[in-house]
Design a protein around this nucleic acid. Structure first.
Lengths: 382, 382
DNA sequence: TCAGTTGTTTAAACCGCTTTAACAGCGGCG
DNA sequence: CGCCGCTGTTAAAGCGGTTTAAACAACTGA
């Protein structure tokens, strides 16, 4: 079975077949001018005949560029799985890399080894630059990569880019819309179940929620940590629902779908109906969001476009040393049936559990985004 | 700020600093014998002082090995996100690669470009071998990679390896356990919502289910396609629940959690209680499974270990030309509350929704999960 | 006829490492 | 003393491309 591992053709083989020198082959391949058209096509034909493609390691060595971008994921292993962001993001990166024949080098580490991973990537010359995702508050990586001379782009807002090029996507409008809508529906006590404190985007989402609540003339309800996890979301929900009737929120805005879905389940288990007794909003628009019970209102960000934009920006940083910040169209709220009118305070029984009646859903599904999407804009750096 | 992109140290710089020749540095680095202990440590000290690490492209070129493994994902973009398998699998691969300083090259393609991606990977010499996942029935890739002389390992059972080394993890026991348990609980009509027909593991899961049902002395209930998606799972569940009372299953074994969770939501929307009216089993143990309402019985496979085992096997194939098949510990069922005793046939409602028997399934529009629910017909007695 | 172009092609150096083969230095052996 | 076999070290030849500078034809115009 083991196919005789024949020697793969090299540039010399192609040159010989075409009756030219190796340099000519290189010129033809790279579209350099100064080669007769006839010669060029003869060379390309020879290359095709042999099925030759230049060896990437050899190219990388002589060009001094690896032809690859790096992505280091340092989440805890089990936290990666639940998030639909990365697969789509990576696909977006690929859509830029693939046509050029470049590739993506992925490293999964635990947080403790993160810095070492970047050091290695830089010293190795295995990649030409890296994408920094999951930015944390006071994230050391912008300084680290700058110090290492490793080109990098921040996938997140400029506030955490520390001078690096930032490719961002605003989640504020989605939270603003969600909260505004809830306020319209009569909710007066809107809680937030936040993501991990260390993530920049967790904080941003919390701020967005808070701002929106204040903008609606309300007092921000309680904020509980949900850690972006199902466990956290469930625990937070239980805590919130255990509050006295005067403090218990009638709506919860979760930092992501995973915690929101778990919250939904907890609500059911407590005998609460959503959205009759409690409105719930998530973030991420996981594939399941439209299929929870009831369908979970959530916000969708264009992860694919984000990946592509980040890859392009990194390209530019690598080539020109710097690139302008990019701001993508903001995430858009998908208002699904988990948002509904606030329960009538008069009817609100002080006891949550008890009314186990199954109420049919009447809420029609709106799939349109609540807001028209602005065009992506390129912001000049000051 | 753009750090002055100084020239990175090369092996020559280290050699100069240590007062030896470049070859000596290479020897020291690679632990070659025949170098005086004192010299060796002097060299390593010099290397550390300069922060030098060998250039991977240069190493790859001279060693003739890229020092990287490849993984090509050719799922449809949106189908990748929901699956917790890949992130964990990749982390497992990394756990083997990382200590050696090797890395994983990831390519995301659409199915149409899949073959081209492997061709490129092989001709490029960018990777030393590839991991084949998501095996399809009559998958062309084993033959393709063999023909290309590209070392490969199949992540899936030997039946689809076509002579290649297979690293498999049996899902049969999990299905067998689930079905046996359901039978014990009194279920007599157990349906299956299958994954895409083209995937080898979809078929295997279906076979496992069927075998188990027969082993319990029952007649396999209806099988519907669920496509591993929420849409598909929801549609299939609606169809099953619309069956006449004589045919309607009391338990559904889904091919994965995504479709199962959607099925759960549909059941609720139809006014059915789980597990009182219907038992549901998934597969994958997504992070949410324990937090659906009710918690979803599911099966957990060790994706991390699978990735590590696959990477090790591929290493061996690369080094020795072949490796023995590996069989990992089978997936285990996590019996959660979504499995319960079969409903008492005496109390079951006499007919399905409306009086129409099986309604041709309206193609579920992508987001239209919350289609107006038919009047609940099977209602739990108070 | 010859220097000066212009347009094509190639020799040769180089990228940074590995590896083979050769080379010093040295104590022991005959 | 000269030769041998060691040990420790290095020169030099790749690996497979890219790139610079020079060589070479074929044409100019003077």
């Amino acid at each position: 079975m083991a196919a005789a591992r024949e020697r793969r053709p090299t540039i010399a083989d192609v040159a010989r077949l075409a009756g030219v020198s190796p340099s000519a082959v290189s010129f033809a391949l790279n579209g350099r001018p100064g080669l007769a058209e006839a010669t060029k096509s003869r060379i390309l034909a020879a290359a095709a005949e042999l099925g030759w493609r230049p060896s990437r390691p050899a190219q990388a060595l002589s060009r001094g560029r690896a032809g690859a971008l790096g992505l280091v994921l340092s989440r805890e292993t089990d936290a990666i799985g639940a998030d639909p962001f990365f697969p789509a993001f990576i696909a977006g990166v690929e859509s830029v890399l693939s046509p050029r024949g470049d590739s993506l080098v992925l490293h999964v580490t635990n947080p403790a080894d993160e810095a070492a991973a970047y050091h290695r990537l830089a010293a190795d010359r295995r990649v030409d630059g890296v994408l920094l995702t999951d930015m944390r508050v006071d994230d050391p990586r912008p300084e680290l990569t700058t110090g290492l001379g490793l080109p990098a782009v921040v996938v997140g807002d400029p506030g955490c880019a520390d001078g690096l090029c930032a490719v961002s996507l605003d989640d504020k409008p989605a939270f603003a819309t969600a909260v505004a809508r809830l306020a319209e529906l009569g909710h007066r006590r809107i809680a937030h179940v936040a993501g991990p404190r260390e993530f920049h985007h967790s904080r941003r989402r919390q701020e967005s929620w808070e701002q929106a609540v204040r903008a609606a003339g309300l007092t921000p309800g309680p904020v509980l940590p949900g850690g972006f996890t199902a466990d956290g979301g469930a625990a937070a929900t239980r805590q919130l629902m255990a509050l006295g009737v005067g403090e218990r929120p009638t709506a919860i805005v979760f930092a992501n779908d995973l915690s929101a879905t778990a919250g939904l389940a907890v609500a059911h288990r407590l005998g609460l109906s959503v959205p009759e007794d409690l409105s719930v909003v998530g973030y991420d628009d996981t594939p399941l969001a439209a299929y929870t019970h009831p369908p979970l209102a959530s916000a969708r960000a264009d992860a694919l476009g984000w990946g592509a934009a980040a890859a392009r920006a990194l390209d530019e940083v690598i080539a020109r040393g710097r690139a302008d910040d990019v701001e993508l169209a903001p995430a858009r709220l998908l208002p699904r049936a988990s948002m509904g009118p606030a329960p009538d305070p008069a009817r609100a029984a002080p006891s949550g559990p008890g009314s186990t009646a199954v109420r049919p859903q009447r809420q029609p599904e709106h799939e349109q985004a609540a807001e028209p999407a602005p065009e992506p804009t390129v912001r000049r750096e000051p």
